[in-house]
């Protein structure tokens, strides 16, 4: 395989991460927020893969696998919560779910 600049891969990961972060902050829909978390996790995974590829070691991919597992579990639980929240409050507006304020 041809060599790809390592920094550019990391740069791509940063851009994706920042975009996910922006989405997390500006969207009020819970489902979209979960999606943005997925984007961020994916960006992190990309960084791991790039690093593993940079050194030619399997560890990067192992870490990606773990991130993947985490994402899967998080989505499972998170979407279950979204369902419950929608049933209770008939809305997905995260700003209206502020019962936990001190």
């Amino acid at each position: 395989m041809a060599s790809i600049p390592f920094e550019h891969a990391l740069l791509l990961a940063s851009v994706l991460f920042a975009l996910g972060l922006v989405a997390l902050l500006i969207r009020r829909n819970l489902i979209v927020m979960l999606m943005s978390v997925e984007i961020m996790l994916n960006a992190a995974g990309l960084a791991f893969i790039a690093a593993g590829s940079r050194w030619g070691q399997p560890d990067g991919q192992v870490m990606f696998l773990l991130v993947l597992t985490l994402a899967a579990a998080e989505v499972g639980v998170g979407l279950g919560l979204v369902l419950q929240i929608y049933r209770r409050y008939k809305t997905l507006d995260v700003d209206r779910l502020s019962e936990m304020q001190g």
Partner: peptide, 14 residues
């Protein structure tokens, strides 16, 4: 942070 690390090649097959 990225710029500091200098240029490296990636793409080694695992």
């Amino acid at each position: 942070t990225l710029m500091r690390s200098g240029a490296h090649e990636a793409g080694r097959i695992v």
